Amino acid sequence: MSTTTRSVVLVTGADLAEQALSLLGDYEVIFAGKTPTEDDIVALCAKYNPVAIIVRYSKVGDKAMAAAPSLKVISKHGSGTDTIDKVAARARGIEVVAAAGANAAAVAEQALALLLACAKSIPALNTRMHGGHWDKATHKSLELGGRTIGLVGLGAIGQRFARMVDAMGMRVVGFDPYAKDLPDYIQPVDLATIWREADVISLHCPLTEENRNLINAQTLAACRPGVVVVNTARGGLINETDLLAALQTGQVASAGLDSFQIEPMTAGHPFQGAANLILSPHIGGVTSDAYVNMGVAAAKNALEVIARQSVAA
């Protein structure tokens, strides 16, 4: 157990924005390193007994919580809390909070970049050009204006992305049972309508046990032939084997993915080298601005919980 006289905030990463560290000035901040394992987190909890954990990487499960009896709050450096055992946290009276919206601009821009790369075949054409080819006579891109895009998830990221594609002249339909007061350019629909009508499907929802493998052989078969799939949310939303099969048959014309079932992706993954598949290493929210925004929001959220619990005690 740590002998420090100050309460500890554990960060499951190697760094935190200076602006966030300034907010945590009354605490000793301990960093877990660039690629901490779940066992590393448990060991650090046992050593330092933190009052708060700011989650950047790795999972935080019941063993880590049990090793830190002083733990009051687990604060996500971002919006997705699927790497935190929320059931265990609830049972122990530990609050789980997220920096919702802090990286909305960054992730929405990544979704747009992946969509455009898919529609305009930018990576493939770039490779061909560097190889000395000129494919103007044979290539046809997908024009997005006038086509329908279906968004699954209409939180801060989904709505920001919707504004972007609406400006491009796309018809925007979306599914989110929790979204309220949607702007006029988003037409709320059910999932069946998205599968049936969308030329592009883009995922912007959290991963739950209910929607795991939401994109699968059955739902892809219900889509329009040649649909484009974009995922900047969580890899577990997509059955990767089924998506690859649909790409090979042409049922999915192309896909742009920023998240995967298992991360980091390792050598030999079936996606590597697949045609019409554009990949990025879960960096949608990784910008200099989002880094600051998420760090500050995560720190503020943690401090608010600690302050509130201290008053209640």
Rank of each mutant, 00 (worst) to 15 (best):
L142K: 14
T193S: 09
L142D: 14
K136H: 08
W134T: 00
D176T: 04
T232C: 15
V229K: 11
V200A: 07
E197R: 09
R147Y: 00
P183H: 02
W195H: 08
V165R: 13
G131N: 08
Y178T: 11
A119K: 03
M129H: 07
Y178M: 05
T138R: 01
T241W: 07
K140P: 00
C205F: 03
H204L: 10
R196I: 00
R196H: 06
M164N: 12
G158F: 03
L144Y: 01
C118F: 02
D166L: 02
L142A: 14
I238R: 12
P177N: 05
D135N: 02
D190G: 12
F161I: 05
L214Q: 12
G145D: 06
I201H: 07
G153Q: 01
P188A: 02
P183L: 02
W195P: 03
T148N: 01
T219I: 07
L207E: 08
G174H: 14
W134N: 01
V173H: 04
L114E: 07
N213M: 07
K140H: 13
E209Y: 06
L144K: 01
T127E: 14
S141D: 10
T241Q: 15
V165A: 11
L115T: 08
A221Y: 14
G145P: 02
D190S: 09
Q187I: 15
M164E: 05
I201K: 09
G155P: 03
L151D: 04
L125H: 03
N126A: 13
P177C: 03
V200M: 06
D181F: 05
H204K: 09
A162V: 07
Y185N: 12
W195Y: 14
I201G: 04
A217I: 04
L115F: 07
A192Q: 14
M170D: 03
N231C: 10
L207W: 05
E210W: 04
L144T: 08
I238F: 09
E240Q: 14
R128I: 08
F161K: 08
R171D: 02
P177I: 03
L151P: 08
A217T: 12
R212K: 15
G174D: 06
M129P: 00
N211S: 11
V189G: 00
R212L: 09
A192M: 09
G150H: 05
T148V: 13
N231Y: 10
E197Q: 14
V229Y: 08
R196N: 04
G158D: 06
A137S: 05
A233H: 12
